[in-house]
């Protein structure tokens, strides 16, 4: 591995100062499951890794049924799914957090890291988008909050500017009669990268037979994870059933712009989008009805 510096700031301000000084040559280190491999394989040219795990806010995980969920950018996946209240309130997020990599990855990897890695196939990103999560970004004395769907700008690239860091992810409290789900397709059960991933969230009306809001997000079918607004909109104001779900799935397929690579052809991926969107919608609707 290239020889690198290591810094372990204890405050956000200290971390931002290093990130500002070093620019692209500095990168935050949370679980390290992506960045350490990337530095070793010369896929990212880094001079300093900024270990952010000593910063209290970045390690905090807070859930309040009235305020929602705050996930520090370095909180490892297992802390999220082992938290009983959070697991009950956000099953769609847990689908992804409990499936990424294997157990050893989940012991270290964070949702913040998954997002900053900006892989088009990032497993936790579609459910975060579907659940209307926002990114709390701090840098240069200012704080801004942006929706997760705006965060990734290209494969491996994010909207973070010089001296900025992702501090937290915020999710609104789950509404009554809402449900979410995430599924991905891979040729084995674990330790692989999604061929396609689909994360959906639905909100049902009082009758539980109609949808009053829905969000559908896809992974591995575009340069960045994709929010397909029109597919969610198609679910609203019709009687929920196979016809409506099929319509949403076809709109999601139409929005997908996949490439062909070693994991699957573009055609195959398009097909998978339809399958996974239907399956996830059925799970999410079931959760909304029974939750």
């Amino acid at each position: 591995m290239k020889d690198i510096d290591y810094a372990a700031p204890k405050t956000i301000a200290e971390a931002c100062a290093i990130l500002n000084e070093k620019g692209d040559k500095a990168r935050c280190l949370a679980g390290g499951t992506d960045i350490i491999v990337q530095v070793r394989e010369h896929r990212r040219d880094i001079d300093v890794l900024v270990d952010i795990k000593h910063i209290p806010q970045v390690n905090a995980l807070n859930y309040d049924p009235s305020k929602g969920l705050t996930i520090g950018a370095a909180v490892p996946c297992y802390r999220i799914y082992e938290h009983k209240e959070i697991a009950r309130a956000y099953p769609g997020l847990i689908d992804a957090a409990a499936l990424i990599g294997g157990i050893q990855i989940q012991s270290r990897a964070s949702l913040g890291g998954n997002l900053c890695n900006a892989s088009p196939a990032g497993d936790t990103i579609p459910p975060l988008i579907a659940l209307e999560a926002t990114c709390v970004i701090v840098g240069a004395g200012a704080m801004r909050e942006v929706p997760v769907e705006k965060f990734c700008t290209a494969p491996g690239k994010t909207m973070l500017g010089r001296g900025e860091m992702l501090v937290q992810l915020k999710l609104p409290p789950p509404k009554p009669r809402s449900g979410a789900a995430y599924l991905r397709f891979i040729p084995r059960n674990e330790m692989d990268i999604a061929v396609v991933g689909a994360g959906v969230a639905v909100l049902l009306d009082d009758s539980k037979q109609r949808c009053s809001a829905a969000r559908i997000a896809l992974a591995a079918v575009a340069p960045t994870p994709l929010l397909v607004l029109e597919a969610g909109a198609a679910l609203v104001d019709g009687a929920l059933g196979d016809a409506l779900i099929d319509k949403a799935a076809s709109l999601a397929q139409a929005a997908a712009k996949p490439i062909s690579d070693m994991r699957g052809t573009a055609e195959y991926r398009k097909h998978l989008v339809g399958v996974l969107v239907k399956r996830t919608l059925n799970i999410a609707i079931q959760r909304a009805r029974t939750g």
């Binding site: 290591y6 701090v138 240069a140």
Partner: peptide, 14 residues
């Protein structure tokens, strides 16, 4: 969060 950000010196790296 934001109040923390301004004007810190980079901590020396190892």
């Amino acid at each position: 969060l934001a109040a923390q950000a301004p004007a810190a010196q980079p901590v020396p790296g190892m």
